[in-house]
Amino acid sequence: MEFRGAITALVTPFRNGEVDEEAFRAFIEWQIEQGIHGLVPCGTTGESATLSHEEHKRVVRICVDQVKGRVPVLAGAGSNNTREAIEITKDAKDAKADGALLITPYYNKPTQAGLIAHFKAIGERVDIPFIVYNVPGRTSVNLLPETLAVMKKQIPQVVGIKEATGDLNQVSRVIEFCGEDFMVLSGDDPTGLPTMAIGGRGIISVVSNFAPAKMAAMCDAALAGDLTKAKALHYELSPLYRAAFIETNPVPAKTALEMMGRFPLEVRLPMVPLQPQNREKLKTALAAAGLV
């Protein structure tokens, strides 16, 4: 299974405090109609940190069932508790997801040796492709390219990385050390095009929640070698990249979808709605892009 192009880190719609299955299924269908290349349920953008285990499992299953094999489903399955990560990854496989997105353990701050041991333990128990998620801004740990190269050799399930350091030098070193067969995906919208320009396969995107067609077109152009078109789309999207992180993700993305009439805004504490001035800035960016 290849994970490439524009892959949406899906928000999770809520209604009255519960997962809104009807809205989620309709949202997934719209994403596919818009030409998206893959979907990630239960990532950070899906508010996985506030989902119960039962909700997490249900959201992944809803996504896989609605997609019906039309695009790859990469299920969020990581944890800072290795035993828990094994359980969630097993469930992703049981749900027939195409792969598991596994964040490096957060809060614990493991060493590089600890990171290898964590992923090796999961690999010994679950045979499903792993995309490792490196986001030091949320975890306080940076998975080094040298460590990732060791993991690739020792853990067959490790087939790629969502690289969210925002450091193109690190991305370049990952590709150098792990080879071009390793699936490197940007974890930051602004570095999607630069990552693909140096050998990456695509992006796991927040902005594609509300601009999937344009993000998919940008990735298609970049991967086809049409950098002129890709650059034009990248700069059209750039104001949306900034707007999507005007406050903590996924609040701006969910607010954008509310403004577009997709579903009502509802987030779980400790997330709260946008400050009024930021809501206006987001609306201005969406209007300029022709989305509202």
Rank of each mutant, 00 (worst) to 15 (best):
A222H: 03
G202Q: 11
P190K: 01
A117G: 00
I122V: 06
I116H: 01
L144C: 03
G187L: 13
G35M: 10
K254V: 13
A77H: 00
E176I: 00
V171M: 09
E146W: 01
A213T: 11
E124T: 01
L148D: 14
P110N: 01
Q34G: 07
V206F: 00
L274R: 02
D189Q: 12
V150N: 12
D189P: 09
S172R: 15
K254R: 11
G43H: 08
K229P: 00
H234W: 07
Q31Y: 05
V73K: 03
V206P: 08
T89F: 00
T147A: 03
G35E: 10
T82P: 07
S238H: 15
E146D: 09
V71K: 11
L286K: 08
E84Q: 08
E258R: 07
Y235K: 15
K57G: 10
E18V: 12
M271N: 10
D167E: 05
I204R: 12
Q66K: 08
V60P: 10
A197I: 14
V71G: 02
Y106T: 06
T111F: 06
E266W: 01
A217M: 03
A287Q: 15
I103P: 00
I246D: 04
W30P: 06
A256F: 07
A117N: 01
I103D: 13
I88N: 07
Q34K: 15
N169Y: 15
T89S: 02
A222S: 03
T139Y: 08
A197T: 12
Y106P: 03
I161Y: 13
D220Q: 09
L237S: 11
F263I: 12
V158P: 15
V19G: 06
V251P: 10
T50I: 04
G160F: 08
A216S: 09
F3A: 00
F3M: 00
P239T: 14
D189T: 14
N142H: 00
P273V: 04
R58N: 06
T104K: 04
R83F: 07
K57L: 10
I203W: 09
R173N: 15
H234G: 06
K90A: 12
V71Q: 06
A9Q: 09
V135R: 11
G35Q: 06
P145F: 01
L237G: 08
E87T: 00
N249T: 09
K214M: 12
P250Q: 14
R125N: 12
M260Q: 12
E47G: 12
K120P: 00
R25Q: 14
R173C: 06
R25L: 14
P105G: 12
F177H: 09
G199K: 10
E176T: 09
F182W: 09
F14A: 15
Y133Q: 02
V71R: 13
Y106D: 11
Q112M: 02
V11E: 05
T255D: 15
M215E: 15
V19A: 06
E84N: 05
I116Q: 01
L115W: 05
A23W: 10
A113V: 07
S79E: 13
R201E: 14
G5E: 07
V132G: 10
